[in-house]
Design a protein around this nucleic acid. Structure first.
Lengths: 216, 216
DNA sequence: TAAAAAATTTAGATAAGTCTAAAAAATATA
DNA sequence: TATATTTTTTAGACTTATCTAAATTTTTTA
C-alpha cells in the first residue's frame, strides 16, 4: 500500500495531466502547497515504485499502475461526496474537505458496496464523473458557458472551479447542476452574460461564465 | 487537532482504564503492538498536551479532556461499524479494521449527521454502547454467560472478545446479538455449558462462555 | 548565442514516531 | 532486607516527509 502523501501526489499528478504535456515539479508544488524540493524527493520515491515515469528536469507522467491508483482515489473521493450530499444532506460547497480525508479509507470492498448502496451514481455533486470499479470514466461533452452564443441553451452540468465561494454564489443565483439556462445577451465590453434560468434573468461575469459547464 | 498516533494512544488508554488502577506502559505497548520505549515517548507528549496524567514509573490516567477525545473516537468507531453492517450489509466480523480507519475522519458534523441518518443507534453490531454527542454511554447491565446458572435465561447482548474467529463461530452457532438462550446444563469437569437457543441445543466451551455477554 | 532568469535538483537539517541497547527504578523473592 | 527479576525510562539511531539554501540545468531574452 501507499502512504497518504504518496496517494495525494498521484491524485495531483492525475489532475494536472493532459494528453501532451508532462506535469512539472512547480505545478505540483503549487497544487500541493509544498516546496519544489519536497516534490523532487517524492517523485524519486514514486518513480522507484514504478508509479510514475520521471526524468529529472523533464517533469512526470503517471504509469498505467499509477493512473489506476489515482483513478481509484478519485472514485472514492467522488462517491463519498455523493454520499455526503445525497444521504447526509450536506451542501455541495461543504463536502470537499471531508472527502479529502475519506478518499484514503483503504477498503475497496467498502467503496464498491457504497457505490451499490447509492445506486451506482455516474456524477458527483459538482457534476464530475465518478470512475467505475474498473477506472472507466463516463466523459460527457460539456462546454464552458463562456464559449456559447446568444440564444443557445442547455443544462448546467458541472463547474471548473470548486471553491466554496463560487459554489455558494451559484447556489444563490440558482445556477445549480441540472438547471436549464439560455443566453439572452452577451455584453461586448466585458464579455459578461445575461442568462435566462427558471423564471428569472441572471447577469454573470465572464469569470463565472468561464467556470461553469453546460451540456447543450 | 491530534495526530493519528495520538488518537490511537488515547483510545487504547481509555480501553485499558478501569476505576482504580492506572494504565501501565507495558499494557499499552502490548495493546498497541509497539515497544515500551515508544510508549514512554508518546506518554510525555500526551502529558505535555494535558490529555493524560503521567508520573514516570506510575502509569497513566486520562484527564477529562483526554477522555472526551477518546470517547469521541469510540463514538465514531461504533457509528461507522453500525453503518457498515446496517447500511452496507457487512457481517459483524468484517467491520473492525475498516472502522479503525474511519474513526479518524475528523468532522464532528459528519458523524452527528451519520448518527441522525441511522436513527441514533444505541449499540454497535457487537453490542457495545455508542457514546452520544456528549460522550454519554448507555451502560446496560450485562453478565458473562459463564457467570450464570442452570435454568437461567436471557438475551445475548454483547461479546468480550471481538476477533473475527470468535464472531464467526458465534454466527455459525446462531449465538448472535438479540438471540434468547437458556442454560440447560453445566459440565462440572470443564465448566462447558449446554445452551438452548431457538430450537436447538449448543454446547459451548468455558472460553466461549467467558466471552459472551447476556442481559438477564 | 551568451548572459540573465526561471525551474529543478542536491545537500544538509528538522520533527514525528518508531526502534535497540543500556541504565535506572520498582517489585518480587529468597 | 539484600538480591534477582521485571518494568520503565533514557540515549542514540532510523525513516518519512518536509524545509532552506546552494548548486545545477533549462529556458528566455537581449
Amino acid at each position: 500500500m501507499n502512504t497518504l502523501a504518496e496517494e495525494n501526489y498521484l491524485k495531483s499528478i492525475f489532475h494536472l495531466s493532459d494528453a501532451e504535456e508532462s506535469v512539472s515539479t512547480n505545478q505540483l508544488a503549487t497544487l500541493l502547497n509544498t516546496k519544489a524540493s519536497s516534490v523532487t524527493d517524492m517523485l524519486k520515491k514514486l518513480a522507484d515504485k514504478a508509479l510514475i515515469n520521471y526524468t529529472p528536469y523533464q517533469g512526470v507522467r503517471l504509469t498505467l499502475s499509477g493512473e489506476k491508483i489515482a483513478l481509484n482515489i478519485i472514485r472514492k473521493h467522488r462517491l463519498w461526496e455523493y454520499f455526503l450530499v445525497e444521504k447526509l444532506n450536506f451542501k455541495w460547497d461543504q463536502v470537499h474537505e471531508m472527502a479529502e480525508e475519506m478518499e484514503h479509507i483503504s477498503s475497496n470492498e467498502l467503496i464498491n458496496r457504497l457505490d451499490k448502496f447509492m445506486g451506482y451514481p455516474k456524477f458527483d455533486p459538482h457534476g464530475d464523473p465518478i470512475p467505475d470499479i474498473n477506472g472507466q470514466i463516463n466523459h460527457h461533452n460539456l462546454k464552458l458557458v463562456s464559449a456559447i452564443e446568444v440564444n443557445d441553451s442547455g443544462t448546467i452540468s458541472g463547474v471548473k472551479n470548486h471553491s466554496p465561494n463560487f459554489l455558494q454564489y451559484l447556489e444563490k443565483q440558482t445556477l445549480t447542476i441540472g438547471k436549464i439556462i439560455s443566453v439572452i445577451e452577451i455584453i461586448p465590453f466585458d464579455q459578461s452574460m445575461i442568462l435566462q434560468t427558471e423564471n428569472k434573468e441572471v447577469h454573470i461575469s465572464s469569470e463565472v461564465a468561464n467556470n461553469l459547464l453546460i451540456a447543450l
